[in-house]
Design a protein around this nucleic acid. Structure first.
Lengths: 346, 346
DNA sequence: ACGATGAATGAACACGTTTTCAATTCCAAC
DNA sequence: GTTGGAATTGAAAACGTGTTCATTCATCGT
């Protein structure tokens, strides 16, 4: 027997283990199901033999009868984004501990999920689906309603949620951004900022729209002018160019509220290396997310933190609760934000 | 019928479609298998009805008989790392186009894969497994040999590959780092560097060991002193502290070769913001990977690029070739590296 | 000693698909 | 009109597991 021929050895099955242990195949199944009734010594012997034979229950066969795939689908527009990669990492770790594997899919850049992707994903029967893309398309997603209930991450206004009626069919994690934004604006105002610009994210992103709305509301509420709206798309390069544009052809500003940290980096670099302006001396900067890069000395960004561990715990809770009660009404978890002060404001 | 009751509607099955279309269930199966023999008009009618009923073949049931799960497992130690997240993103996109979904697992921080994780993953029967963790444990991985053949990404010396005999049971992508390193050292020498430090990555990482080995070899080959070895772990913070240590308690250096780009950022920030030294004036810096952040203006890092599109194409090719010929000998793809010159050397 | 309660056990079925395989239909060529 | 071969079809048998359900076995209170 050469090494290579090992590969042809058929995978061990429950039947084989049963025969080898002189028990019925049902006993093997029970041995791997902790709360099934089986004599302890028998279970031990079966597990021992299973280990020798390198046997593991086949998830596909199991899921066929159990109606549980132990898969959690994630639809992500851009894995490279530091914030999203962080979230995927933490979520995968947490889910792995609960016995779930993550099934990763890439959405389109415009944050939409096309029918093809969804039906494809549906074939795998994920127990739950987390939509990182915020573009809600109720009729498309309705295809999922046979088993899993999708989870949406939304911002601030649970009721409006795109104004779509079928919103009541999703579970959701609501991120309240108001606290963090209020603290940020207070800080900016305290350091004498008068003219604030909002450097936008992807226009289709609900997080972006809500950030813009709340920042405007808070600024005006504190007697300041509404923000100068600078379009962006969450990327460094666009933020860089937009900032240069703001100061070269526009009137400039004495503070920039970026829609995410990466955009804030672009703004900082544009100010320092292209416009020869100082941060925070000439222009103050606030970001959003608090990704690991934000404490890097070149930026040391003051930013609105969305606490990742809290966020992950909330998501896992949503998944487990839904699995326990498939027919329950829409589940909701709420999260808050707070400002992390570093050195880009004062 | 309320909205909620829709959720209880059982998922459409091939049987239902068959009944609805007045054909046998086999015909439905054939309708979804393009190269099966079925009268075109019949296929159209079935697909039409399937669409109306929102039917998709169940992957679990299919994989049970086909012995193809259409899943590609990825074992990743740290999804947050910019380089890895980039690779996961590109790989997922490419595989999705070929009809595969990615199954993501987190390895332990020390780059090892424990038995629990592997047996767990095995249950899902991935068609292929890509090991991003470089710590080779042949006996552990042998548990996979019943169906999928794991792919290892290794560096430079295919033969040595950890010196483990069972290396011949893996497919592998070999990344040749010599070209890039030679170009980098030539550039450093050209700009007058005399004393080069190597800022290491995780000690368990084979990529790191090989980088250290080759850099030493190339330096000595060009008549320079072997590098000062500074231990690290691929992270920004460790690189920052290590660099401070190198210049505070050590003798310093006039050039730093970092084991990855993120480490280079840490070194740059330590030099500029803690040690008040200039880059590239006082110290020249070269990194490894060429991640997107490397062209950010605050760093603008000169670095050894591993071309991502090439790399992904090679990996996908490995997977498809192996699936076509499960019993073929070990498959090997080779890749090269080259220097990307920016402004941290001269 | 005796019925009663509960745990332990295995045969048969179900889950939703693909794959033989034999039977049928179709069509062109003689 | 016949005949051959190819295209088309459906019944039955897998694939590997969890779950009923009726049966056997041990245990315990009276």
């Amino acid at each position: 027997m050469s090494e290579r021929s090992d590969r042809k050895t058929a995978r061990a099955t429950a039947d084989l283990v049963a025969r080898e242990a002189n028990v019925s195949r049902v006993a093997v199944s029970r041995a791997f199901n902790p709360n099934a009734s089986l004599k302890p010594e028998k279970r031990d012997r079966i597990l021992q033999i299973a280990r020798e034979l390198n046997y593991t229950p086949d998830m596909a066969a199991r899921s066929l009868v159990t109606r549980r795939s132990h898969l959690v689908g994630m639809i992500v527009p851009d894995v490279c984004s530091p914030w999203e990669s962080q979230e995927i990492d933490a979520l995968t770790t947490a889910l792995q501990a609960e016995g779930f594997a993550t099934l990763l899919f890439k959405a389109k850049a415009d944050l939409s999920m096309d029918q093809t992707l969804l039906t494809y994903m549906r074939g795998f029967n994920p127990d739950s689906v987390i939509a990182f893309t915020e573009n809600v398309e109720p009729d498309v997603l309705s295809g999922f309603l046979d088993r899993a209930v999708p989870i949406y991450i939304i911002y601030d206004d649970a009721e409006e949620f795109g104004g779509k009626p079928s919103a009541s069919l999703y579970d959701r994690l609501v991120v309240g951004q108001k606290e963090g934004i209020e603290q940020a604006v207070a800080l900016l105002q305290g350091y004498g900022a008068r003219r604030v610009a909002y450097l936008g994210g992807k226009p289709q992103s609900l997080a972006n729209t809500e950030r813009e709305r709340i920042i405007t509301q808070v600024l005006v509420g504190r007697g300041m002018a509404p923000p100068i709206l600078v379009p962006g798309d969450y990327t460094y390069d666009t933020a860089y160019r937009a900032t240069v544009g703001l100061f070269r052809v526009g009137d400039g500003a004495d503070a920039i509220f970026a829609s995410n940290d990466v955009g804030a980096f672009g703004a900082i670099d544009a100010l320092r290396h292209e416009l020869s302006l100082s941060v925070p001396g000439d222009v103050k900067i606030v970001g959003f997310d608090d990704i690991p890069q934000s404490h890097w000395k070149s930026y040391n960004l003051t930013t609105v933190r969305i606490d990742l561990p809290d966020r992950v715990r909330a998501l896992v809770r949503l998944i487990l609760r839904r699995l326990k009660a498939p027919d329950a009404g829409p589940l909701i978890e709420t999260l808050s934000t707070r400002l992390v002060v570093r050195s880009t404001v004062g």
